[in-house]
Design a protein around this nucleic acid. Structure first.
Lengths: 339, 339
DNA sequence: TGAAAATTTGTGAATGCTCACATATAATTC
DNA sequence: GAATTATATGTGAGCATTCACAAATTTTCA
């Protein structure tokens, strides 16, 4: 026997006021005397009343919800902080983990659910620009996490080009001449940017681009890629690995091959996830502060939501090279001839 | 100029049918001729109509939403798979990351948002039983992830007691007599269960419980705890560390202290996160399959939602000991006298 | 072929709330 | 103390849908 939930009217009757007064109370509006406010509040408690959110949303066309749309490719590290900030700012936090096929549909459906703001985390380089996304989202304020530097979309990014440059240049500075790469997926924006920056940095230093294998940002992907690298017969003494996870896997492959890091091969990676500092050897890597990234993303959408004349722009964070034990000067390395 | 969204009526007019027929079409109901169905569909496309979810939810009192309520203590590994399955089954996925204070409020608000099912992930041992939670959730089907074995709440759990027993017994089997522990927070159900099981296993083997330090499941927590352990002057050759993250940190502390794993100290931990296999030395650890756990949790709530006479029960998964290189037989270890 | 059954379409009412406005009451001013 | 302003409360309408039923049309088959 499901007893019906009490409504505004039930409360009104109980407190002997009009339903409108009750509405004022639950929305914390002015023009209610302290006395009646208390009476209403008591009635609410007595009846166990809770406003019907669906009705409220229908009326106000606001759901106090921020939705994160991301592709199903591993939960992103910044989600953690996003959830926290979103709730702190009084919004609900919805995650849609989707595949490519659902992208347009998900964005469109957001409007019909009265989502107030959208944080889009693509896993591939999006072809369309701002206008295209704007059309899809049907006027909901949105930002993108990760985008090319200088993109016209409202976005929050870490400068990937700079990050990969830092990593590659570090290897060059240590005297390495043959620098290989395990890249992320090139269809992924970050993977693409890091890869190109690795090449560009090498070129600018007057070095040949070494061998490069495209992988998938996973531990196992890194392991496989490094095996290929080692078995390819290519010469290299340093490797730029496009993220820490792949570096873990790659390291295992190097050890299995009978070589050592950094004695035989230096590796630099990207992200600085918490494990990297405690890895043996400690990973030299390019740090991105994911908490910060998440927080900035949320703050930006909320800005857009609450302050409609916020200018569309890009917020660019600079990554930082963290030097640990996985890289060494070439002169200190034994020459790599075990093959 | 915000042009109003088209409604059922607009579509009805465009397609020259009644609004009810349009409703039938968008809900894929029977009793609509193929011809009119197509006509309506065309009208929907022409006008760019999308049903107003808020109105639908208000009417049906269903939101097709499953909410995960978890405490703000790091994103849990099973979230990934949960998101996937939830969406695969046609529900929306909402995450509420909360602190203790918000618990009751969040559960209560779920009803007013017409959440269809709740997955509760406590970070502390919940005092109340099934009835208490049931009262809070106001009749929404819910399950809990993590609970004491034998609890009356509908729950999906890994048998923590068995897991910690496996780990501890492994150390005992290797000949270790002085077995210390870095535990998780004891207010946490898993932390509590693992700790007690470590003690019980030792007792049953006729051994004294070694020194134990309570920590917080983080890398740094593990690091600090191991330092305390080492500086305490206590004798131990094996340590049960309540999760892999703490083991990473603990390993760093051991190395800094000039000792080696497993030569001087054997460590077993818990979880088997992907990094553990690639750690050096590979971590001997108790594996929990978080994807499986996530999937089972979702399937259970959906069962409860869609099939109201599903019996309340507990689904218990058994963890598995994965032996790698962080443990060794006592006889193979050099005696630990470096102190 | 015609009555019964099945299918297709339509109408009225309800859902629980907020907005815009109207009215009543109290406080302020000259 | 009447006129003005501010504050407190109430009323009507509407938001976009679905449910339950009624009406119209088509199909079935004795």
């Amino acid at each position: 026997m499901k007893t019906k939930r009490p409504t505004l009217y039930d409360v009104a009757r109980e407190a002997n006021v009009s339903y409108q007064t009750v509405s004022r109370v639950i929305n914390d509006k002015a023009h209610v005397s302290e006395e009646t406010r208390e009476r209403v509040q008591k009635a609410i408690k007595t009846l166990g009343f809770r406003p019907n959110r669906a009705a409220q949303i229908m009326q106000t066309e606001r759901s106090d919800t921020i939705e994160v749309v991301l592709f199903y490719s591993g939960f992103n590290l910044f989600l953690y902080e996003m959830a926290r900030i979103v709730q702190q700012l009084g919004y609900h936090f919805v995650i849609s983990a989707i595949t490519d096929a659902d992208f347009a549909r998900t964005l469109e459906s957001a409007a019909s659910r009265f989502v107030d703001g959208l944080i889009i985390v693509p896993d591939t380089r999006l072809r369309g620009g701002y206008e295209e996304l704007k059309a899809l989202t049907g006027g909901i304020p949105f930002i993108q996490v990760g985008a090319p530097l200088g993109a016209s979309v409202p976005s929050v990014i870490y400068d990937q080009v700079q990050g990969a440059r830092l990593a590659t240049q570090h290897l060059i500075d240590l005297g390495h001449q043959n620098i290989a790469e395990i890249s992320g997926p090139l269809r992924n924006q970050d993977g693409y940017d890091r890869h190109n920056s690795w090449m560009a940095t090498l070129r600018e230093a007057g070095l040949e681009a070494g061998i490069s294998i495209e992988s998938n940002f996973t531990i196992d992907g890194g392991y496989q890629a490094m095996r290929h690298l080692l078995e390819s017969g290519a010469e290299f003494t340093g490797v730029f690995i496009a993220n820490d996870s792949m570096a873990f896997g790659a390291h295992t492959a190097i050890r299995e091959y009978g070589l050592r890091v950094p004695d035989d091969i230096s590796i630099v990676s990207f992200d600085d996830i918490p494990e990297s500092a405690h890895f043996v050897p400690g990973l030299t890597t390019v740090r991105q502060d994911f908490n910060l990234l998440g927080r900035m993303a949320v703050e930006y959408v909320v800005d857009l939501i609450e302050n409609p004349n916020t200018a569309i722009h890009q917020r660019v964070l600079q990554p930082k090279l963290i030097i640990r034990e996985s890289t060494a000067a070439l002169t200190d390395q034994r020459v790599n001839l075990t093959r």
